[in-house]
Structures are given as structure tokens and as C-alpha cells.
Design a protein around this nucleic acid. Structure first.
Length: 564
DNA sequence: TTACAGACTTGGAAGAATCTTC
DNA sequence: GAAGATTCTTCCAAGTCTGTAA
């Protein structure tokens, strides 16, 4: 095992002893529009002040995005925009419908076209400039190691794009200045210089946290951080730890399950609710579901925050008994829709929890995430609701790989099995994506390829037949060699056809499933690495370069016998 | 018990880079 | 070698969960 992953013990809560960096890279200041690109109000050109113009460009850039058709987006934008206008502008610009951003929009579209059309040399030059910034600001020194930073740039100003029905969509996200930024580094390190003429908000030396810089964003008034890249030792060790907690759950999960099943009959309503909620979290991999401040964000829920309106009870449905129909918006306003047959006791309890309640009432009115997590912590050190997601995801991958992999398969066939196992997890965790815009087209292309290959296979078969006939007649060595040649050719064609068919299956099954999140965040990479080793699949077929860097710890330590 | 701040992980979309195909 | 498709990377929003204070 590489020593990089062997932890030298630090005091409780201490994350590093040395941290040195350059501070964040600040995105360039606004460049005014050329004079011939105009904004029009009520049909007439209107020269805007610099600040007003900048905000106008934020909206103009988004003109062909669906966001700008939404009333909330428009209203929020217009309100915030007006606040930044000069009083003269405020007197003129009173109606968004009379604002014409089309020329500005076109200017940016053209600009991006022009960028794409640059020559190879010009593009190379741009790349070198970006690399230089990355080299200078993109790394830090942490305990003697040079580590990559995840997000070393401050976020540019723009319009807030919340997801789902977000009440704040379209609001102005302000430009981050050095005066907003708190720097965190070690006392004896070279303290980063703020940009010329500016000061940091604060410089602190807190070695109990992992961030290098932070600021408060103005939309939700929450903190944003600059942190390390997943490839760093600090993040890698944390990731490893996460999976070790999940593996400890594996040892006690049977006991926990037995207990929550028993608690379905508890005299205490609070306990019953906790037990049913935990059953959902375990069986369906639901998220914990913290309470959220009403009206500040989109209306989404998790397990503990489910409301009566989010489930329907069916004593019988489609030949199954005790079916619960879930329909709610979860994280990122992704819809969770599922019909699940549950134990009779769970069903009865749900009926009880819903009795005399309005649709908008909490299903688990005696429960919240901190009650649940406190309970879980008492069952196992380090246990919280999300550990069940990690555990169930990883164990599912391991089981599915075991069930689906055929050692006789080609690498392509094994990869299909892997993807299917990965997919089972993504479905469990409800990781969805919108169907790619090019899906139908590329599916068709693939089918065309398959048809062509089929044709080739048939021709290959005929040619082989012909060669065999000829050998039959002549019995000479040349004809025999030809038969072998044709056999080989046919075999290759058949393999190519099989591979294409596999690809098509994989693609179709993957239409609306996003595999990335589970691969990156829920599946213990050691399971994958062990599988690769066991079945002779190169790791690069599963993990790309970035992923291999992130999972370096696992690649170092897992052998083919690893069991989650 | 609740409210809240803070720190950290998880999430899909969009943009950029690279590969494939004609 | 351009266009289109695919894959990788970046972006930043939206969760989880802990600790603290009242």
C-alpha cells in the first residue's frame, strides 16, 4: 500500500499543519459593449450606464433560454436591475416588455461563433494563457504536497438560475470582490496578496477546516468555499472513510432492520414514524429530507419532510397488495415516482399517520432529520441517514456484478454487465437525466451501422461457403489457407456485430438514467477495481483520467479479492 | 427543543475538448 | 478537414449533517 494513504495521526478535528496558496483568481471586470451594439427601449436606442449595461448583458445572453420566458425570472430580474439603475434610467425603463436586448444577444452569439472559428494557433495561445492561470492559482501546498484546487476562480456575476420552481430565479448575483473574501491559510505561510488596490475581508488561520477561501453569496446569504480537488489526499481520505463507515453498516444492518421492523408495532407514535421513515430510507434509498425555509427555495422534499399529498395508498394495485404510490419532487426538483408494495404493518401505519390530516400536512409529524440521525448515531458510531444510500448503492453494485458478469464474455460484454449493474444503482438512487438532444438521431445511426454489419456478416458467410466448396474440389493448400482466412474474417465481423448490438442495448437502457453521480459518489471504487482485476478489464474502460485520479487511493489499495 | 451558521458532499446541465465520420 | 457526436470538465446549486447558543 502506498504510504500516501497512510494517515499520520493529527489531533482531533485538525485537518492540516501547513496550507499555502495564492488566493482566488478573480474573474475579469466587465468590458463595455462596442458603440454599435445598442439596447433599445420602446423602439428607441438608449445608452445605458456601465453598471446597468452589464446587468442587461446578463439577461441578453440568456434570451433563448427557457428561463427568460418565466414570469418569476422576469420579475426578479427586472426588480434587481432597476435597483442598480441611475435615477434617470429608472425614470425611463419601467417595463421589461419594452426592453429590446436582441442586438446585444446577437453580439454575444457572434462573439462565441468567432471564438469557435479561431485558428489553431490562436486557440493554442488562449489555452496557454488559461494554463498559466491554472498553474499560478490552481494549486496549493498542503502539508508539503502540491495539491490541485477544485474551484480556484470566484463565481462571475450573473443572474441566479435556481432549479425547478425557484422563487429567486433571475435575481442578480453580485460580483465578488476581494473585500468579500475570507482567506484561510497557515500562519507561517506566504499570505496571498489581494489584487492591486484591494484588501481581503479577513485572513484567518483555521486548521480545523479544509477551505482556502470563502465568501457569502447574496442570493441565499450562504457561504461559498474554495476547496481542494477530489484528487487531493485530504479529499481522498475522506472519501475512503465514507466507504469504511458504509462497510461498518453492513455488519449491523441486519440488527437495525430487525429493530425498525419491531418498532412498527411500538406504542409510541414517534418511534413508529421513525421506524417507517427508516424503512423507506433503507429500502428505497430516499434522502433524509431536512426542513427548508418556506418560500426561499423550490418546494422539494426528502423522507422526513414528505407530506400527505406525496403518497397514495392502494390496498390492491396491479395484482399487488399494500402498494404505496410515491410522487414528489426531490433534490434539484427531480421527480420521484414509484409504486412499491410494502409490508402490511407499514401500510397500516401509513394509514394511521395520514388520518385526519390535510394533504399539505407532514406525513411524519413527530419526526425530523435530527431526531432520526441522533437515533442512528446511537445504533452505530458515525451512522446517519445518508450512509444507507452509500451502503445500499455499493452493496447493490457488488451483488449485480456478481450476478451479471460472465467470465466467458468479451470485454465489451463485460462492460455491458458493468453498466447494467451501475444502472441498477442509478435507478435505486433515482439519478435521472433529460434524454440527450441527439438521442434519437444517434440511435438511428447506430441501427444503420448494425444493418450494414449484418450485411457484411452474410457476405462473409457466403464467401466462406465458396472457399470451402473450392477446397472440397481442389484439395490444394492454397484453397485450404483461403478457407482459414475467410473463417477468421467472418469471426471478426461477427464480433463487431455483437459489439454494436451490445452498444445499442446499452444506449437504449441508458436513455434517461444518469450514471455519473452514483459512480462518483456512491459506489465504493474498490468494488470496481477488484472486478476489473478479476475479469481482466482495463480500469481505463471504466474510469477516465479524472476519475482515476480521484480514486487513486482505491487503485492503490484494492486487490481482486476485495469485498465491500 | 429550536434556530441558525457553517462546512462539507452530492447533483444535473452546460460548455469545452476530443473523437468519429463523411 | 469540417461537421456532428460523444466524452470530459466545469459550474454552481442544492442537499446533508454537525455544532452552538438561546
Amino acid at each position: 500500500m502506498c504510504s500516501r494513504w497512510e494517515e499520520e495521526k493529527k489531533e482531533d478535528g485538525v485537518k492540516w499543519t501547513q496550507l499555502e496558496h495564492r488566493g482566488p483568481y478573480f474573474v475579469p471586470l466587465y468590458e463595455p459593449l462596442p458603440d454599435d451594439v445598442q439596447f433599445y427601449y420602446d423602439g428607441k436606442p438608449l445608452k445605458l450606464s456601465l453598471a446597468t449595461e452589464e446587468i442587461a448583458t446578463f439577461y441578453a445572453k440568456m434570451l433563448d433560454h427557457e428561463y427568460t420566458t418565466k414570469e418569476i425570472f422576469q420579475n426578479n430580474f427586472f426588480n434587481d436591475w432597476r435597483k442598480e439603475m441611475t435615477s434617470k434610467e429608472q425614470k425611463i425603463i419601467k417595463d421589461l416588455d419594452k426592453c429590446d436586448f436582441r442586438e446585444i444577444h446577437k453580439y454575444f452569439v457572434d462573439k462565441s461563433e468567432a471564438r469557435k472559428a479561431l485558428s489553431k494557433e490562436e486557440k493554442q495561445k488562449l489555452k496557454e494563457e488559461a494554463d498559466k492561470i491554472q498553474e499560478e492559482y490552481g494549486y496549493c501546498i498542503l502539508d508539503g504536497h502540491r495539491e490541485k484546487i477544485g474551484n480556484f476562480k470566484t463565481e462571475p456575476p450573473g443572474l441566479f438560475r435556481g432549479r425547478g420552481d425557484h422563487p429567486k430565479m433571475g435575481m442578480l448575483k453580485k460580483r465578488i470582490m476581494p473585500e468579500d473574501v475570507v482567506i484561510n491559510c497557515s500562519k507561517d505561510s506566504k499570505i496571498p496578496e489581494p489584487p492591486e488596490g484591494h484588501k481581503w475581508k479577513e485572513v484567518r488561520f483555521d486548521n480545523t477546516v479544509t477551505w482556502l477561501a470563502s465568501w457569502t453569496e447574496n442570493i441565499q446569504n450562504t457561504l461559498k468555499y474554495i476547496m481542494l480537488n477530489p484528487s487531493s489526499k485530504l479529499k481522498g481520505e475522506k472519501d475512503w472513510q465514507k466507504y469504511e463507515v458504509a462497510r461498518r453498516l453492513k455488519d449491523v444492518v441486519h440488527k437495525i432492520r430487525a429493530q425498525y421492523r419491531a418498532d412498527w408495532k411500538s406504542k409510541e407514535m414517534k418511534k413508529r414514524q421513525r421506524a417507517v421513515a427508516l424503512y423507506f430510507i433503507d429500502k428505497l434509498a430516499l434522502r433524509a429530507g431536512n426542513e427548508k425555509e418556506e418560500g426561499e427555495t423550490a418546494d422539494t422534499v426528502g423522507c422526513c419532510s414528505l407530506r400527505v399529498e406525496h403518497i397514495k395508498l392502494h390496498p390492491r394495485l396491479d395484482g399487488q397488495e399494500h402498494v404505496v404510490e410515491f410522487d414528489f419532487l426531490g433534490k434539484d426538483s427531480i421527480r420521484y415516482y414509484n409504486k412499491v408494495s410494502v409490508e402490511k404493518l407499514v401500510f397500516k401505519n401509513l394509514q394511521l399517520f395520514m388520518k385526519n390530516k390535510d394533504p399539505a400536512d407532514d406525513l411524519f409529524d413527530r419526526l425530523n432529520t435530527s431526531i432520526l440521525n441522533r437515533h442512528l448515531q446511537s445504533l452505530m458510531d458515525g451512522l446517519s441517514a445518508k450512509v444507507f444510500r452509500t451502503y445500499n448503492a455499493s452493496i447493490t453494485l457488488q451483488e449485480q456484478l456478481k450476478a451479471l458478469t460472465n467470465s466467458e464474455d468479451s470485454v465489451a460484454g463485460k462492460l455491458l454487465s458493468y453498466n447494467r449493474a451501475n444502472r441498477a444503482v442509478a435507478i435505486l438512487c433515482n439519478h435521472q437525466r433529460s434524454t440527450p438532444k441527439t438521442f434519437e438521431k444517434s440511435m438511428q445511426n447506430l441501427q444503420t451501422k448494425i444493418d450494414a454489419k449484418k450485411q457484411q456478416v452474410e457476405e462473409g458467410q457466403q464467401e466462406l461457403k465458396k472457399a470451402e466448396d473450392e477446397f472440397e474440389d481442389t484439395k490444394d493448400a492454397k484453397a485450404e489457407a483461403n478457407v482459414e482466412k475467410k473463417k477468421k474474417l467472418l469471426k471478426r465481423l461477427e464480433e463487431q456485430l455483437a459489439k454494436l448490438n451490445v452498444q445499442a442495448t446499452d444506449k437504449e437502457e441508458n436513455k434517461q438514467i444518469a450514471l455519473g453521480t452514483s459512480k462518483l459518489n456512491y459506489l465504493d471504487p474498490r468494488i470496481t477495481i477488484a472486478w476489473c482485476k478479476k475479469f481482466g478489464v482495463p480500469i481505463e474502460k471504466i474510469y477516465n483520467k479524472t476519475q482515476r485520479e480521484k480514486f487513486a487511493w482505491a487503485i492503490d489499495m484494492a486487490d481482486e479479492d476485495f469485498e465491500f
